[in-house]
Design a protein around this nucleic acid. Structure first.
Lengths: 187, 187
DNA sequence: TATTGTTATACTCTATAACTATA
DNA sequence: TATAGTTATAGAGTATAACAATA
């Protein structure tokens, strides 16, 4: 079952600063019905937003980091007029000639009804084609066309380069560590 | 401007293995019109999907790691019937009494028209309330109700605990390194 | 009986235009 | 003139149900 559907939680760089939370008084754990943190109906203004709790969450940071890299990905694929999922699909077909729609659904976490249009659109653009599956009469194998192959062979190294450029401020060791730690999180 | 809109690229654990790509023959960079990688109309079957290129991308790994933690987040918030963005909103209001809808939009990367319903829904559920802004007649300051505060004060530590439990297979040093490296990616 | 691909459709999320009240 | 909040609406993404053909 899909693990997406996880909209906005993170976006712009958040300011540090303790203004508002300090003003409200650290929210004690004691159960005092009165006084409330902000009196009866006091109205105050927030100058600098304090997002320190969210920023302390690993998930928050992982999501922001992911969005940052997704941005690199998106920008790079714009030149090819491909969405991330479309590029990923073509890359998988390129690496797995004869792959079925069902297998792509599992890899890309796309439901079968939503995969249909995606494949058809890419086929209409001349990037891939369907052939009967050799062993399963229900399924269709997917293959890159020559144009599709050229696209993937151009896009893949370009993407790697963009990604590398975007993490140039990390040392080689840090890049390796990061990759290792990320994989530890989900594998 | 929002940085989302980045659907499926990643999901289930991908198998390692070189089956299909090896069979297709490493896709040489030379421009030989014939033979194509998969002959004229050869149909082959893919047994084990090879996602090694995608897996070599930092963005792919970051997204999968993020989705994994988002899963922890979602599961933890289910008990409170809160979406991630709703919890984040309440947490921000808790830490920033008097925060405006506009400030929340910037923090959470939600567009103003979409913020309206979210705030109203949480207000209707009795978690927060609006009061006139002390200095800006156009704006409304947001404040947690007592119920809302209790919710946040219960949910926040519970979330921290869930997150910690989900990364128990990482050493304390690795957890710190990971946090640092993630922040280096987007800050 | 279970699975692949497919259609139709509903629901959620995200985005744009435009209006009002105030700064 | 610009901004905060709001309404209406369009669009993209994601979800379920159901069907035909094949396993």
């Amino acid at each position: 079952m899909p693990a997406h559907k996880t909209a906005a939680t993170v976006s712009k760089p958040a300011r540090t600063g303790r203004s508002a939370r300090a003003k409200a008084g650290a929210v004690p754990h004691t159960t005092q019905p009165e006084p409330l943190a902000e009196a009866a109906s006091e109205a105050v203004a927030v100058d600098q937003v304090d997002a320190s709790f969210l920023e302390s969450l690993l998930g928050y940071n992982a999501r922001r980091a992911s969005l940052s890299l997704v941005g690199v990905f998106v920008k790079c694929m714009e030149g090819f007029d491909l969405k991330i999922v479309e590029f990923s699909l073509l890359s998988l077909v390129g690496g797995n000639p004869g792959i079925t729609a069902r297998q792509l659904c599992q890899q890309l976490d796309v439901l079968p009804p939503n995969m249909v249009g995606m494949i058809e659109a890419l086929a209409r653009r001349g990037f891939l084609e369907r052939r009967p599956h050799p062993r399963d009469g229900r399924a269709m194998g997917l293959y890159l066309t020559t144009v599709g192959r050229e696209l993937v062979e151009t896009a893949e190294p370009q993407l790697k380069a963009s990604e590398l450029a975007s993490v140039q401020h990390l040392s080689a060791q840090e890049q390796t560590q990061l990759m290792t730690l990320l994989q530890k999180l989900y594998r």
